[in-house]
Design a protein around this nucleic acid. Sequence first.
DNA 1: CGGCTTCCTGGCACTCAGTGCACGTGACCA
DNA 2: TGGTCACGTGCACTGAGTGCCAGGAAGCCG
Lengths: 247, 247
Amino acid sequence: MSSSSVAPPVKPPMRDALVTAAFRLFLEHGYEQTTVDDIVALAGVGRRSFFRYFPSKEDVVFPDHEGCLADMTAFLAAGDPECEPVRRVCDAARLVLRMYAENPTFSVQRYRLTKQVPGLRAYELSVVWRYERALADYLRGRYAGRPDGTLRADVIAAAVVAAHNNALRSWLRSDGRGDPDETVGHALGYVQDAFGTEPAAPAPGGTAAALFGGPVEHPDDVVVLVSRRDAPLWRVVQEIETAFGRA
Amino acid sequence: MSSSSVAPPVKPPMRDALVTAAFRLFLEHGYEQTTVDDIVALAGVGRRSFFRYFPSKEDVVFPDHEGCLADMTAFLAAGDPECEPVRRVCDAARLVLRMYAENPTFSVQRYRLTKQVPGLRAYELSVVWRYERALADYLRGRYAGRPDGTLRADVIAAAVVAAHNNALRSWLRSDGRGDPDETVGHALGYVQDAFGTEPAAPAPGGTAAALFGGPVEHPDDVVVLVSRRDAPLWRVVQEIETAFGRA
DNA sequence: CGGCTTCCTGGCACTCAGTGCACGTGACCA
DNA sequence: TGGTCACGTGCACTGAGTGCCAGGAAGCCG
């Protein structure tokens, strides 16, 4: 589907012919029962040409992921630095969803294949892993310098991918009916609530932040800070340290 | 290392001989340059026997994961239902870490291999995926009935695995020096903070700090932070930065 | 128009992972 | 002693993936 922007505008038809022939055979006889020779025979091309277009037999099942991954990294690279990082990677995930949603029938067919062929599942994992790496690398850049920046980046990237996949699979299981954007949006909202900057329930007037790791035994264990938003950050930190009884 | 509890107590030495021979050759000539024939020649056994013990060439690199996965699922199945679910899966992750920590040199060697051989990376992903599935399935059971139970389960499982891997890799990069439990514990603590218990309602009492340099025109110019006193300071600062809309 | 390069394609032979099958051997038992 | 069962082994075979080279179509140029 979406072609990488650097690729030549006119794609040779042989690639598409191979994909079409492959999926016809995969759906009819199964993935493992279909040999590369079968595919090239149906497509009417030479066997050597198959491996010219697809480095492996598995790649023909995911013909568009290379371009989609490139699109996503470009999207992240071109982002304005003002945008909140978690929101940004969630938008990147929505971009991937759009690629699936463009061809519902194709996506559903592929889903059924990968679900029941272990080799394809393993291959899909390596594809998803590259998306996750792209998200994590972006977040690592945004969180550079922060304590536990890479940890935060890795965890959030994994959570975003998991939420995306959870919603995507539920949409695919319904044979591509319904609105995938809504489902994925809800799932990503959950992640944004957990990690994101906007607290779930903004207090009446102004912003509120809460930090609790467990039950509070005693009121003295609670610290409340109220501040103007435009206060200098170093003053805030100073006040915090004092209130927390640390220096 | 740890053998599955159902496996016979006395393991045939041939398995270990194959692993030893394989790793010697992998480290000396590289994974892809080593053929199965090379391995069985060095081990002094028949080629057919290799595939009796390892279904594929990749499996010889992860000889203990099958048992570890079984141990982990058993650990989860035998858990008391009172234990908080997130804490439970974090403990399960610690169990996996222990398996790595038992043989530091072996783990480091394997890490170097998988880092630079794409095929092994892909295989490792499928291994990790099975751990993640086990955690997610456990959480799905615990969260059954809750709204978004499976979403919550999948996201938390992914976050736990990501945190575990982040800490594990940082330990492996340091050649197995230092205390992996501490690193992993810290990483898992981050996940527990994010998902563990919902933040409780802020109670009156405790310490209050106020920061005002002048009159406040609009309620949106006010930020309120409520926190436990023993919250990690970096988390507080991070939350502050977010609430103040700065990165 | 003829020769030239260049790209795309196809065919061939080869390596190697993985499998099915049949055979041999040793242990254990009736 | 005969039978069976588990385990190791050799052999032949399939199929994925690669390197190499030949042929053909399009383009540029003399």
